[in-house]
C-alpha cells in the first residue's frame, strides 16, 4: 500500500512507456513478419545467389547479440547521414533481427507444403508469385503459428533493450521511476510480473489463433 502511494504519481508516465512498448512491438512485429516472409521466399528460391544472400542475412543476425546490432544502427546510421529518432532506430533494428528468426520459421513451414498441392496450383495456370502468396505462404503461416509465436514473444522481451538507446518505453520509464522513488526492488519486481503477464497473455492469444487457423488443417 505504501508502495502504491509512492508509485501513484508516476502511473501516467509508466502507461506512456507501456504505450510506446506496444507501438514499438506492433511495428517491429509487422516489419519482422514482412522481412521474414520475403527472406524465407528468397531462401526457397532456385537462384543460388538470392539464396546465399538471404541465408547470410539470417545467419548473421541470429548470431550477433541484439544489443550490438542496436548500437551498430544507433551510432552508425548518423555516420551515413541518416538521422532518425532512437525509437525509429529501435523499431528498424527489431524488425531486422526479428526477420531473421521469422524467416527460419516460415521456411520450415514452406518445406512442409505438400508438393502435390503446388502441382495442382501450377497446372491451373497460377503464376509463381500467386502460387507463393495464395497457396504456399498461407499454408506455411498456418503450420508455423506456434513457433512464430515464440519468436514474437521474444521480440516483445527484446523491446526492453531499446531502453539502452534512450527510448523511454516500459523498461526505460520504469528505470526512471525506480531511480526517482528509490524503490528499485518493487518497481522492477512489478515490471517483471507485468512483462511475464503480457507475454503469457500473448501466448494464449497465439494458441487461440493456432486453433482457429488450423481447425480444418490436419493433413491434406
Amino acid at each position: 500500500m505504501r508502495f502504491w502511494r509512492v508509485i501513484e504519481p508516476y502511473i501516467g508516465f509508466l502507461l506512456q512507456g507501456f504505450a510506446l512498448t506496444v507501438v514499438a512491438c506492433l511495428l517491429a512485429i509487422a516489419g519482422a513478419v514482412l522481412l521474414g516472409a520475403l527472406t524465407a521466399s528468397m531462401r526457397s528460391s532456385g537462384n543460388g545467389l538470392v539464396r546465399g544472400i538471404a541465408n547470410a542475412y539470417g545467419d548473421v543476425f541470429r548470431n550477433v547479440p541484439f544489443l550490438v546490432q542496436l548500437f551498430f544502427f544507433f551510432y552508425g546510421l548518423p555516420e551515413l547521414g541518416i538521422y532518425i529518432g532512437a525509437l525509429e532506430t529501435g523499431i528498424i533494428a527489431m524488425s531486422i533481427a526479428g526477420g531473421a528468426f521469422v524467416s527460419d520459421v516460415i521456411l520450415s513451414g514452406i518445406l512442409t507444403v505438400d508438393a502435390g498441392v503446388i502441382d495442382a496450383a501450377k497446372v491451373s495456370g497460377l503464376s509463381r508469385f500467386k502460387i507463393f502468396t495464395r497457396i504456399v505462404l498461407p499454408i506455411a503461416m498456418r503450420v508455423s503459428v506456434r513457433p512464430m509465436g515464440s519468436v514474437l514473444i521474444n521480440l516483445v522481451l527484446t523491446s526492453s533493450i531499446l531502453s539502452t538507446i534512450t527510448v523511454n518505453e516500459l523498461t526505460g520509464a520504469a528505470k526512471i521511476v525506480a531511480a526517482t522513488t528509490f524503490k528499485p526492488f518493487e518497481v522492477y519486481a512489478v515490471l517483471l510480473v507485468l512483462y511475464a503477464s503480457l507475454t503469457t497473455l500473448l501466448s494464449f492469444a497465439i494458441s487461440a489463433v493456432h486453433h482457429r487457423l488450423n481447425r480444418f488443417m490436419t493433413g491434406g
Binding site: D114, G116, V117, D119, A120, A121, K122, V123, S124, G125, I135, P138, I139, R142, F216, M217, G219, G220
Partner: peptide, 20 residues
C-alpha cells in the same frame, strides 16, 4: 506452357486440394 495449361486441366490421384 501458359497457353497449354489454359487449354487443359488435371485431376490428381490424391486430390491435392488446397487445405486452407
Amino acid at each position: 506452357l501458359v497457353a497449354a495449361r489454359r487449354a487443359s486441366a488435371t485431376v490428381f490421384q490424391l486430390f491435392n486440394l488446397y487445405p486452407h
